[in-house]
Design a binder for these strands. Sequence first.
DNA 1: CGCGGGCCGGAGCGCCGCTCTCGTCCCGGC
DNA 2: GCCGGGACGAGAGCGGCGCTCCGGCCCGCG
Lengths: 236, 236
Amino acid sequence: MGTPGTARARARAEITAAVKEAARAQLAQVGAPALSVRAVARELGMASSAVYRYFASRDELLTALIVDAYDAVGAAAEDGARAGGDDPGGRWLAACRAVRIWAVDHPHEFSLLYGSPVPGYRAPADTIGPAARVPLVLAAAVADAARLGLLHPPTGALGLGSGPRLVTPEVLEAVGIPAGDDRLVERALGMWVALIGTISFELFGHFENVVSDRAGYFELAMAGAAGAVGLEIPVP
Amino acid sequence: MGTPGTARARARAEITAAVKEAARAQLAQVGAPALSVRAVARELGMASSAVYRYFASRDELLTALIVDAYDAVGAAAEDGARAGGDDPGGRWLAACRAVRIWAVDHPHEFSLLYGSPVPGYRAPADTIGPAARVPLVLAAAVADAARLGLLHPPTGALGLGSGPRLVTPEVLEAVGIPAGDDRLVERALGMWVALIGTISFELFGHFENVVSDRAGYFELAMAGAAGAVGLEIPVP
DNA sequence: CGCGGGCCGGAGCGCCGCTCTCGTCCCGGC
DNA sequence: GCCGGGACGAGAGCGGCGCTCCGGCCCGCG
């Protein structure tokens, strides 16, 4: 691991990192739509054309920032879960809170990940691994709870336990949730949607003049999401 | 109502509408980030500077499109609810389906409403009325169900029925949900978040390689959201 | 019916993403 | 050690963008 020995490659890696760092700083300040290659180049004191030696286009630069952001929020979720104690519900709740804290601290990065996609943009394959880290943390907690027999019988949505699968086979295999029970994977998916959706509403301004206590509402929403899959979480 | 009598004002209203119409067409094709005042002007065969006689800036033009889109999705939700039959659960589910259908048919408009906000943008006051139409339709169904005694006792999230209110007083007044019961307003809010969040995940590509049957998952998610507030919905 | 004010087109400013060319400079193989 | 070549940076440039200013036309109001 580490940079290759040749001095040229090392310099290239350093400058690439510097460009990315400057771009990240500008992203955090002005947001993705206003991020400009020329401004990044100015910040670094180089010609704008020189930046294109390291990133073929603005989209490629943004993609690198996306991958880093997915890794950052994924790491935050994993760290939160690790610090969440022994029981799966506590780990799940801690991960959710960690994701929200990260999002509030990095609103523009969060928008880049979970906001409107750029119409022409196609996510490269190397983004899906980092993007999966957060949902995998949530799924791992549910899977642990299921294995330990800690899941209550699911509430609400009665009579929907049968029917064809709604998720792809690779997801079924990746999440590690015991199959066969009534749409547990699909319900766990709902926890992910609830987590990101609630944070999105908060950050995107839809709770303006609506929700007065954002953190309190987040706790309530997560408690509701946990209840929908029968995951018991520690009382606050 | 109607356009003022003076011919000048009438012509102005007509051209304003034509500009908005051309902008809407461009929005539907290329999305909000790529919508350009110059292209709209080209489409109408006029100089780009002439457009600024009718909309002071690109932001103002986008705001007009936002208001129209909120009204369109709000009308879709209201029509859906009207056609949803007599029982509140059926109306609620029909409204949710109508919103999803509208969103799938108008993905760029949906992104404009519920995607990442433009960093510098401040939503004018005249957007909040149209923006409230969809959540008010959902709230009305819950309020009707509560008044008719059709709400099951809420499931999950036990022990969270008390504590300070989390929503603003004006929301409490506007939604018309009987107060006093255990956070019913906050739970109904969760249905709105689940609706928009689920559609966002679908349209923004987060279900790529994850959910195979999008419509089926939407039904399941909405059933779960209904269960969380104790609203009984017709079985499919 | 005259005239004034709204309207339009065109030029222009400073940005943007991206490309091409050209001179330089330094790494690496001999 | 030396030389060749490839990576590199700078600059100019292209087309497009949002937005502004100015001059002239012309239509509708009084």
